[in-house]
Amino acid sequence: MNMIKQTYRDALRDGMSEEMRRDAEVFLMGEEVAEYQGAYKCSAGMLEEFGPKRVIDSPITELGFTGLGVGAAFMGMRPIIEYMSWSFALLSSDQIINSAAKTYYMSGGKVGCPIVFRGINGLGKMVAAQHSHDYTNMYANCPGLKVVCPVTPADAKGLIKSAVRDNAPVLVMENERLYGMEGDVPEGDDVLVEIGKARLVREGKDITLIGYSMSALQCEKAAEMLAKEGVDAEVIDLRSIRPLDKSAIVKSIQKTNRAIVVEEGYSFAGIAAEIMAVISEEAFDALDAPVERMSLKDIPIPYADHLEQASIVQADDIVKKAVQICK
């Protein structure tokens, strides 16, 4: 497969654009997506290519334009709704959870909702507590939704394309720190990444490090550091939180017999807690040590850079913990 070097933001844009060329029923609506070219430039050039009918600047009224997108999706359209931040999308959570997620079931399968909600999630850019929060667990908790967290440019493109084609509502949790990162992206309009499949980032035999979004990158970095200490870590990027690729987790634990789950979200009722439950239910006998989790500090996220960084699990922390467990 031919590869091109691309940033995450360009890969996202290409993914959306390809789907819009393929299907006239796809439109992009959100805060600053058109004239401004995207608050984070993820839709650069799209207004020019598709025109104002299909690339639409919304007012900053998340509840309203999310509900509008859901109503259009009820009619069979395939909207992509972009939020400047998932923190703002809290205002629209009624429409995401009560309308998008539940109507298919409540209608006995009569009214579907093929919609994509996407935007930046998480933290790490000194924007303080109201703009710094990982909402993945909140939405993944709700039946009727799919939730994906692409980390690489290739996954950003492949998953946004799958999300647009999916008949279910799909939430794409991005991160501002990822947008500028470069990676190899396969060429071709029909290269999809299947929703519900984890990515095996690195093979290893001593311990499994499991992360998603930014924490998957920390795990990868930690694994490289651990190699120098003689610990051979396997790294799994969950990539899709709901549906969750349980078999990839179980298979890895059966090989390594040890695991750390890392998250840039809060620990209480969080994603790591869910992964630990899965391991306990389905791979308990394979464990040689208790599964550990490393989460965001249980505080509203502070502004100052060093304080913010201190609230995030760093690769060094993962290395220390992994060495302890493997000792």
Binding site: V70, G71, A73, P79, Q95
Partner: peptide, 13 residues
């Protein structure tokens, strides 16, 4: 809740 939904249905039309 149904008011934005209706607005989206009209948007589709």
């Amino acid at each position: 809740g149904n008011v934005p939904l209706a607005t989206g249905m009209a948007f589709a039309a």
